[in-house]
Amino acid sequence: MTTPLKNVIMAVDGVTEVFPARSLWQRLPARAMSVLQRPGAEPEDGELVDVRDLDGRTEVTVRVGVSAAARTPDVVRGVAAAVRKHLAPAEVSVKVTVARVAAADPVPAGSRHG
C-alpha cells in the first residue's frame, strides 16, 4: 500500500524526495540521510508514508523535499490532492510537511520548470 502511494507522491511536479514520515528520519545518521537523498536509493524499511485509519477516516502523513525551481505551497497542495485522489473514495486527511527545499543545488539545466 505505501509503496504505490510513495510513487504517487513522487509523481507530483516539484517533489524531489519522500522522507520517512515518522520520527525515524530525525535521528538518521547524516550519512544515511545523504544515502536517502541520493536518487534511486531505497530505504529498507519502506515506512516512507504513514497511513493509518482513525474512526473510518484515513490519515496520511508524508514528508517531502521540494525542488528549488518549484513553488513549495503549490507542490504541497498538489501532494495532498494526489493522495486524496489515489485513495478515493475513502475519507482522507493528509498531513504534508516539507523538510527540505533543494535550493540552488546545481539542478540539471532544464530538467524541471516550476
Binding site: 535521528r27 545518521p29 547524516a30 513549495t72 504541497v76 497542495r77 495532498a80 493528509v94
Partner: peptide
C-alpha cells in the same frame, strides 16, 4: 556521527481541504 536534524518550528501552508494539514519546517 548521528546528528539529529533540527526541524525547528512548523510553518503552516494554506490547504485547499480543511481536513488537511500542510506545513514546512
Amino acid at each position: 556521527l548521528t546528528l539529529e536534524l533540527r526541524p525547528g518550528r512548523t510553518i503552516p501552508l494554506r490547504s485547499e481541504d480543511p481536513a488537511d494539514s500542510l506545513s514546512e519546517t
